[in-house]
C-alpha cells in the first residue's frame, strides 16, 4: 500500500482468493467487473490519479484480500 497523496496506483487481483462478494464493483465499476461465475475481473491495472480513491476503497472493501493496490513500478 502507498500513502503519497496524489499519484497513480497499480492494481492486482487474484481470482483464486476472490469470494465473489462484488465489493470492488460497487466501489469502482470503472476498474472492476465480475465474470458470470461472480469472480473478479480487473478492467484496468494501472489506475490514473483521478480513480485512486475508488481503487483504494475497492481494496479496503474486498473481504477476501483478492484486490490489492501497489505503487506503480
Amino acid at each position: 500500500m502507498v500513502s503519497r497523496p496524489v499519484t497513480a496506483l497499480r492494481l492486482e487481483t487474484d481470482p483464486d482468493t476472490c469470494a465473489g462478494a462484488g465489493q470492488c464493483v460497487r466501489a469502482a465499476p470503472d476498474l472492476f467487473d465480475q465474470d458470470d461465475d461472480g469472480l473478479v475481473v480487473l478492467l484496468r491495472a494501472h489506475v490514473p490519479p483521478e480513480a485512486r480513491e475508488r481503487a483504494l476503497t475497492a481494496a479496503d472493501w474486498c473481504p477476501s484480500g483478492a484486490v490489492t493496490a501497489h505503487d506503480p513500478s
Binding site: 465473489g20 462484488g22 467487473d33 461465475d37 461472480g38
Partner: peptide
C-alpha cells in the same frame, strides 16, 4: 462458487 454467480452486482 456454485452460488456467487447468482448474486453478482449485474
Amino acid at each position: 462458487r456454485m452460488l456467487v454467480g447468482e448474486f453478482t452486482v449485474r
